[in-house]
Design a protein around this nucleic acid. Structure first.
Lengths: 194, 194
DNA sequence: ACGATAGCAGACAGACCTGTCTAGTCTCAT
DNA sequence: ATGAGACTAGACAGGTCTGTCTGCTATCGT
């Protein structure tokens, strides 16, 4: 992502192992509680390699969040391709979320979690805002395609539902909240299209 | 709170200053980023006093969260007393939340934030669950009093809205999300009471 | 008056964390 | 074969964190 990726991926190793280890540990246990030593131990990588690849822990965190953002986009868009009807596509977001919150390792929104344990004004805030803006933009497009009279308004409402279902999925463990959010979204969609 | 509070509060000092400092710093900057030294410096208290009053940092954190929980209950219930009509009381929860998210220092749900940066199975999780259960219980009673046919179901829906509005208040800064959540809650309430 | 209690100030220990640096190994293209 | 680049292993420095301990002071009930 940074400068020049010479000839694409050739081996399964190096910086990818670091990112994979960082992703698992940071998401599962938080950024502050996981030290560099834990990351390099799980990655099976020397400390010098980490600091020559990423320059600091904060840059590793940024890369971790950027990876999450990219994965989230592709997963969400891929999940939406199952549907043709614009209304189903809109509601499909909550079905993807239900699948996600149903998996045992779910611990809430990685970006909110990271932002909750970091002082504002850093790299985390940037990626977090980008991710959030993308979500709202996606909802806006889906709302427009579904024929909402005020797509921005519906998008804002759906963001609230999405956030709430994500929090519920973490705190109450399970996909109940996501499924209920889907029902509410159905109502809102019906009301927004008259 | 712990054992015996001998003759109640007489002076403005001691453990109360510690709790006040912990509240401000932990909520504003997070638990891990704020060290003991910062807390005792702001409280104007010796380190030995902290460790003789609370036994550890974790106990200080628990006391901080318990204080938040108590304050939240009283503030919420006090805010609801303005209304007589059961429906207004239910929607009043979102008005109190709107006031809260409108204040500049709002940084989201203290319990979720704390839980996001702590390993599960500790004191934080306990207080967090208690607080969450109380919220759901409050919504349940309000939903029942407002005449909802399935109060538990409506309560779950309102919790989703509340969580979503809280996240939105933090990430997007402002009370827009809370006011929108209030509107959605109005719809849900109407639908739940036929 | 006097002893108990509470609090203050700060040094100190031990652990941990980020980041640097040295030295050696492995692979591969030329 | 040889030299460049990527990687490993681990010591080390400097800082920060929690928690303990030693003195000193002030206040208050008896």
């Amino acid at each position: 992502m940074s400068a020049a990726s010479p000839s694409a991926t050739r081996k399964p190793s190096a910086r990818d192992r670091l990112l994979a280890a960082a992703d698992e540990l940071f998401y599962a246990e938080g950024i502050h509680t996981v030290g560099i030593d834990r990351v390099i131990e799980r990655a099976g990588v020397a400390k010098a390699s980490l600091y020559s690849t990423f320059g600091s822990k904060e840059e590793l965190v940024r890369a971790y969040l950027e990876g999450r953002h990219a994965l989230r986009r592709t997963r969400l868009l891929a999940g939406l391709e199952r549907y043709d009807d614009p209304r189903d596509r809109l509601l499909g977001v909550f079905e993807v979320l239900a699948e996600l919150t149903g998996t045992p390792g779910f611990r809430g929104c990685a970006f909110y979690n990271a932002s909750a344990e970091s002082t504002p004004g850093g790299a985390i805030e940037d990626v977090s805002n980008t991710n959030r803006a993308w979500t709202r933009g996606l909802f806006y497009e889906l709302a427009r395609d579904a024929g909402a009279h005020d797509p921005a308004r519906l998008a804002d409402q759906l963001v609230i539902l999405y956030d709430g279902a994500s929090v519920g999925g973490r705190m109450d463990r399970g996909s109940t909240a996501a499924l209920q959010a889907r029902e509410i979204a159905t109502m809102l969609l019906a009301a927004a299209t008259l």
